[in-house]
Protein backbone atom coordinates (compact mmCIF):
# COMPACT_ATOMS: atom_id res chain seq x y z
CA UNK A 1 0.00 0.00 0.00
CA UNK A 2 2.97 2.29 0.62
CA UNK A 3 4.20 1.67 -2.92
CA UNK A 4 0.70 2.14 -4.30
CA UNK A 5 0.49 5.54 -2.62
CA UNK A 6 4.07 6.46 -3.54
CA UNK A 7 3.38 5.72 -7.21
CA UNK A 8 0.31 7.92 -6.94
CA UNK A 9 2.27 10.75 -5.33
CA UNK A 10 4.85 10.63 -8.08
CA UNK A 11 2.26 10.56 -10.84
CA UNK A 12 0.46 13.51 -9.31
CA UNK A 13 3.66 15.48 -8.85
CA UNK A 14 4.98 15.12 -12.37
CA UNK A 15 1.59 15.67 -13.92
CA UNK A 16 0.97 18.88 -12.11
CA UNK A 17 3.12 21.15 -14.18
CA UNK A 18 3.24 24.06 -11.76
CA UNK A 19 4.54 21.86 -8.98
CA UNK A 20 7.07 20.13 -11.16
CA UNK A 21 8.40 23.43 -12.48
CA UNK A 22 8.39 25.32 -9.22
CA UNK A 23 9.83 22.50 -7.15
CA UNK A 24 12.06 20.62 -9.54
CA UNK A 25 13.14 22.98 -12.31
CA UNK A 26 13.45 26.23 -10.39
CA UNK A 27 16.64 25.43 -8.41
CA UNK A 28 18.25 24.05 -11.57
CA UNK A 29 17.30 27.20 -13.40
CA UNK A 30 18.72 29.39 -10.66
CA UNK A 31 21.93 27.40 -10.75
CA UNK A 32 22.19 27.95 -14.47
CA UNK A 33 21.58 31.68 -14.11
CA UNK A 34 23.83 32.30 -11.14
CA UNK A 35 26.50 29.99 -12.50
CA UNK A 36 26.61 32.07 -15.66
CA UNK A 37 26.77 35.36 -13.80
CA UNK A 38 29.38 34.74 -11.12
CA UNK A 39 33.07 34.83 -11.99
CA UNK A 40 35.08 31.65 -11.90
CA UNK A 41 36.48 31.98 -8.44
CA UNK A 42 34.91 33.34 -5.30
CA UNK A 43 36.92 34.48 -2.31
CA UNK A 44 35.71 33.11 0.98
CA UNK A 45 37.62 33.97 4.12
CA UNK A 46 40.64 34.64 1.97
CA UNK A 47 40.46 31.26 0.25
CA UNK A 48 39.58 31.16 -3.39
CA UNK A 49 36.92 28.60 -4.31
CA UNK A 50 35.34 27.86 -7.71
CA UNK A 51 32.01 29.69 -7.81
CA UNK A 52 30.38 26.71 -9.53
CA UNK A 53 31.10 24.64 -6.39
CA UNK A 54 29.83 27.23 -3.94
CA UNK A 55 26.69 27.74 -5.93
CA UNK A 56 26.10 24.05 -6.34
CA UNK A 57 26.22 23.59 -2.59
CA UNK A 58 24.06 26.68 -2.12
CA UNK A 59 21.38 25.57 -4.51
CA UNK A 60 21.48 22.07 -3.12
CA UNK A 61 20.52 23.65 0.21
CA UNK A 62 17.91 25.86 -1.38
CA UNK A 63 16.54 22.85 -3.28
CA UNK A 64 16.18 20.85 -0.08
CA UNK A 65 14.30 23.69 1.60
CA UNK A 66 12.23 24.37 -1.51
CA UNK A 67 11.25 20.74 -2.09
CA UNK A 68 10.71 19.57 1.45
CA UNK A 69 9.61 22.74 3.22
CA UNK A 70 7.90 24.62 0.40
CA UNK A 71 6.64 21.63 -1.54
CA UNK A 72 5.21 19.77 1.44
CA UNK A 73 3.56 22.80 2.97
CA UNK A 74 1.88 23.66 -0.34
CA UNK A 75 0.80 20.09 -1.07
CA UNK A 76 -0.54 19.38 2.41
CA UNK A 77 -2.41 22.65 2.87
CA UNK A 78 -3.86 22.40 -0.64
CA UNK A 79 -5.04 18.86 -0.06
CA UNK A 80 -6.39 19.61 3.36
CA UNK A 81 -8.42 22.63 2.29
CA UNK A 82 -10.19 20.90 -0.59
CA UNK A 83 -11.01 17.90 1.59
CA UNK A 84 -8.66 15.34 0.05
CA UNK A 85 -7.06 14.57 3.40
CA UNK A 86 -10.43 14.36 5.07
CA UNK A 87 -11.65 11.97 2.39
CA UNK A 88 -8.66 9.70 2.99
CA UNK A 89 -9.38 9.50 6.67
CA UNK A 90 -12.48 7.40 6.19
CA UNK A 91 -10.65 4.85 4.02
CA UNK A 92 -8.60 2.00 5.46
CA UNK A 93 -5.35 3.67 4.35
CA UNK A 94 -3.40 4.09 7.61
CA UNK A 95 -2.38 7.73 8.20
CA UNK A 96 1.18 6.62 8.90
CA UNK A 97 1.38 4.93 5.51
CA UNK A 98 0.07 8.05 3.86
CA UNK A 99 2.61 10.32 5.55
CA UNK A 100 5.39 7.85 4.79
CA UNK A 101 4.44 7.81 1.11
CA UNK A 102 4.34 11.60 0.92
CA UNK A 103 7.73 11.86 2.61
CA UNK A 104 9.33 9.16 0.44
CA UNK A 105 7.99 10.91 -2.61
CA UNK A 106 9.56 14.17 -1.43
CA UNK A 107 12.84 12.40 -0.77
CA UNK A 108 12.78 10.83 -4.20
CA UNK A 109 12.11 14.15 -5.90
CA UNK A 110 14.93 15.86 -4.04
CA UNK A 111 17.33 12.99 -4.69
CA UNK A 112 16.63 13.33 -8.41
CA UNK A 113 17.12 17.05 -8.14
CA UNK A 114 20.45 16.60 -6.33
CA UNK A 115 21.62 14.26 -9.09
CA UNK A 116 20.52 16.77 -11.72
CA UNK A 117 22.38 19.58 -9.90
CA UNK A 118 25.58 17.55 -9.73
CA UNK A 119 25.34 16.58 -13.38
CA UNK A 120 24.60 20.15 -14.42
CA UNK A 121 27.53 21.35 -12.32
CA UNK A 122 29.92 18.72 -13.62
CA UNK A 123 29.18 18.97 -17.28
CA UNK A 124 28.21 22.61 -17.74
CA UNK A 125 30.08 24.57 -15.09
CA UNK A 126 32.95 22.22 -14.44
CA UNK A 127 32.09 21.96 -10.75
CA UNK A 128 33.77 19.38 -8.53
CA UNK A 129 32.23 16.02 -7.78
CA UNK A 130 31.25 15.50 -4.14
CA UNK A 131 34.37 14.83 -2.11
CA UNK A 132 32.51 12.54 0.27
CA UNK A 133 29.81 10.67 -1.62
CA UNK A 134 28.36 8.91 1.35
CA UNK A 135 28.19 12.15 3.28
CA UNK A 136 26.54 13.78 0.27
CA UNK A 137 23.83 11.14 0.19
CA UNK A 138 23.46 11.59 3.94
CA UNK A 139 23.03 15.32 3.38
CA UNK A 140 20.16 14.64 0.95
CA UNK A 141 18.35 12.67 3.64
CA UNK A 142 19.22 15.11 6.41
CA UNK A 143 18.02 18.06 4.37
CA UNK A 144 14.72 16.43 3.51
CA UNK A 145 14.21 15.29 7.11
CA UNK A 146 14.85 18.74 8.59
CA UNK A 147 12.86 20.73 6.06
CA UNK A 148 10.06 18.18 5.85
CA UNK A 149 9.63 18.58 9.61
CA UNK A 150 9.41 22.34 9.10
CA UNK A 151 7.15 21.89 6.08
CA UNK A 152 4.61 19.79 7.95
CA UNK A 153 4.88 22.16 10.89
CA UNK A 154 4.17 25.13 8.62
CA UNK A 155 1.28 23.28 6.99
CA UNK A 156 -0.24 22.88 10.46
CA UNK A 157 -0.08 26.63 11.08
CA UNK A 158 -1.04 28.02 7.67
CA UNK A 159 -4.77 28.29 7.51
CA UNK A 160 -5.64 28.90 3.89
CA UNK A 161 -4.79 27.40 0.55
CA UNK A 162 -4.60 30.87 -0.98
CA UNK A 163 -2.03 32.05 1.55
CA UNK A 164 0.30 29.12 1.49
CA UNK A 165 2.53 29.85 -1.49
CA UNK A 166 2.88 33.47 -0.43
CA UNK A 167 3.90 32.47 3.08
CA UNK A 168 6.25 29.80 1.80
CA UNK A 169 8.07 32.13 -0.56
CA UNK A 170 8.22 34.99 1.90
CA UNK A 171 10.02 32.63 4.25
CA UNK A 172 12.00 30.65 1.73
CA UNK A 173 13.61 33.25 -0.54
CA UNK A 174 14.94 35.58 2.18
CA UNK A 175 16.15 32.56 4.13
CA UNK A 176 18.00 31.22 1.10
CA UNK A 177 19.48 34.65 0.41
CA UNK A 178 20.59 35.24 4.00
CA UNK A 179 22.02 31.76 4.38
CA UNK A 180 24.16 32.19 1.30
CA UNK A 181 22.38 29.85 -1.10
CA UNK A 182 22.70 32.33 -3.93
CA UNK A 183 26.25 33.46 -3.29
CA UNK A 184 28.68 34.11 -0.43
CA UNK A 185 27.31 35.96 2.58
CA UNK A 186 30.62 37.01 4.11
CA UNK A 187 30.05 40.70 3.46
CA UNK A 188 26.52 40.91 4.87
CA UNK A 189 25.95 43.63 7.47
CA UNK A 190 25.73 42.64 11.13
CA UNK A 191 21.95 42.50 11.44
CA UNK A 192 21.53 40.22 8.46
CA UNK A 193 24.41 38.05 9.56
CA UNK A 194 22.82 37.79 13.01
CA UNK A 195 19.55 36.61 11.48
CA UNK A 196 21.39 34.18 9.26
CA UNK A 197 23.05 32.79 12.37
CA UNK A 198 19.81 31.24 13.61
CA UNK A 199 18.46 29.94 10.30
CA UNK A 200 18.52 26.18 9.67
CA UNK A 201 19.62 26.63 6.08
CA UNK A 202 22.81 28.43 7.18
CA UNK A 203 23.87 25.41 9.20
CA UNK A 204 22.68 22.94 6.64
CA UNK A 205 24.83 24.71 4.03
CA UNK A 206 27.83 24.50 6.38
CA UNK A 207 27.32 20.75 6.51
CA UNK A 208 26.82 20.47 2.75
CA UNK A 209 29.96 22.51 2.09
CA UNK A 210 31.82 20.26 4.49
CA UNK A 211 30.89 16.98 2.83
CA UNK A 212 30.78 18.26 -0.71
CA UNK A 213 33.91 20.41 -0.85
CA UNK A 214 36.13 19.30 2.00
CA UNK A 215 35.21 15.64 2.10
CA UNK A 216 34.30 15.88 5.76
CA UNK A 217 31.95 13.47 7.45
CA UNK A 218 28.30 14.45 7.90
CA UNK A 219 28.97 14.56 11.63
CA UNK A 220 32.05 16.77 11.47
CA UNK A 221 30.28 19.82 12.86
CA UNK A 222 28.08 18.70 15.76
CA UNK A 223 26.80 22.20 16.42
CA UNK A 224 25.55 22.63 12.86
CA UNK A 225 24.03 19.16 12.88
CA UNK A 226 22.38 19.92 16.22
CA UNK A 227 20.83 23.16 14.98
CA UNK A 228 19.50 21.51 11.81
CA UNK A 229 17.97 18.62 13.75
CA UNK A 230 16.54 20.97 16.36
CA UNK A 231 14.71 22.99 13.68
CA UNK A 232 13.33 19.84 12.10
CA UNK A 233 12.23 18.56 15.49
CA UNK A 234 10.56 21.88 16.31
CA UNK A 235 8.54 21.62 13.10
CA UNK A 236 7.61 18.07 13.97
CA UNK A 237 6.43 19.05 17.44
CA UNK A 238 4.19 21.73 15.97
CA UNK A 239 2.88 19.19 13.46
CA UNK A 240 2.17 16.62 16.14
CA UNK A 241 0.22 19.07 18.26
CA UNK A 242 -1.48 21.16 15.58
CA UNK A 243 -1.85 19.13 12.38
CA UNK A 244 -5.39 18.62 11.19
CA UNK A 245 -6.82 16.47 8.42
CA UNK A 246 -9.95 18.52 8.22
CA UNK A 247 -10.39 21.66 6.15
CA UNK A 248 -10.89 24.88 8.03
CA UNK A 249 -14.62 25.39 8.24
CA UNK A 250 -15.96 27.95 5.87
Amino acid sequence: MLLHQLAHEQRTFWRSREAAIFIFIFPLLLYTLLGSVYSDEIEINGISVPSADILLAGLFGYGAANTAFGGLAIILVGRREVGILKRLRSTPLPPVTYIAAVLSSTLLIFALQAIALVLLGRFVFDASAPANWLGFVGAVVLGVACFAGLGVGAASLIRSAEGVSAVVNVVLLPMAFLSGSFGPREDYPGVLAAIADVLPLTYFLDIVNGVYLDGESLFADPKALGVVIAWGAAGLVIALTRFSWMPRER
Binding site: R11, T12, R15, S16, V82, G83, I84, K86, R87, S90, T91, P92
Partner: peptide, 18 residues
Protein backbone atom coordinates in the same frame (compact mmCIF):
# COMPACT_ATOMS: atom_id res chain seq x y z
CA UNK B 1 -14.88 -0.20 10.27
CA UNK B 2 -13.24 1.89 7.57
CA UNK B 3 -13.04 -1.21 5.37
CA UNK B 4 -16.81 -1.46 5.43
CA UNK B 5 -18.07 2.10 5.00
CA UNK B 6 -18.25 4.33 1.95
CA UNK B 7 -18.44 8.08 2.36
CA UNK B 8 -19.68 10.86 0.12
CA UNK B 9 -18.90 14.15 1.83
CA UNK B 10 -21.03 17.22 1.36
CA UNK B 11 -17.97 18.92 -0.14
CA UNK B 12 -14.78 17.37 -1.39
CA UNK B 13 -12.49 17.30 -4.36
CA UNK B 14 -9.92 15.03 -5.88
CA UNK B 15 -6.51 15.65 -7.38
CA UNK B 16 -7.32 17.55 -10.59
CA UNK B 17 -4.58 15.94 -12.66
CA UNK B 18 -5.77 12.35 -12.39
Amino acid sequence: LRERIGVVLQQSEFTPHL
